[in-house]
Amino acid sequence: MLQLTDVAKSYPTPQGPLFVLDGIDLHLAPGESLALMGESGSGKSTLLHLAAGLDVPDRGEIHFHERALSALDEPARADLRRRHLGLVFQQFHLVPSLAVIDNLTLQARLADREDPDWTDHLLERLGLTGLEQRYPEQLSGGQQQRLAIGRALAPRPDLLLADEPTGNLDEAAADRVLALLHELIHESRCALLMVTHSARVAAPLDRCLRLHYGRLEPGEP
């Protein structure tokens, strides 16, 4: 479903281009979950951004559902993101001016895929029932991240890209959020690519890879 072939990405520095990713090959099957581990600055987030079509590689090709991202223009990549991908960030990036329910359904509505049954189900599973009319600032950190996960899953994406989704949470809250994430992924048969530096977080996933100086190595959680 997601295929990265010989992907490289560099940033200009005064000392010449710095390759944060170099010769990356990666494949993710439908429904499969993959943890991407690595040190800070190892290029994990960059890889995630490339997979989401938020950024373009210097070299190599990324295919999603057999379509080369390089062949798509910006609106088409945005379209793909809206309909097929879910994104969860460490900082949640909820919309502060929207109530919980509107945040939850935001991407689904953007993708014109709002499903009231699924929304209600998500609310219940995420433990947000009864909080629909609150605003993000009135929620706890764990609730905010659950809401962010719900927002990503509401349009029933094929692939969830998560960037340190529990980085801002304490251990107990993180565990609850992760457990919920896995259940929901299974329920909706959604693939998962999760960036994390934590072995605990990576452990329950199907596979684990490690980024080291821009190169991909098989990893142990």
């Binding site: 919309v95 929207l98 509505r109 953007l110 499903d115 929304t119 209600d120 605003y135």
Partner: peptide, 27 residues
Amino acid sequence: MSGRRPARRAGVVGVTLATLLSHYRRH
């Protein structure tokens, strides 16, 4: 458990505009 919610269809521009304007509701 909340009641059945009707799906809202407003298109990308409509949803985007509503989201942008929600800023003024809070400010």
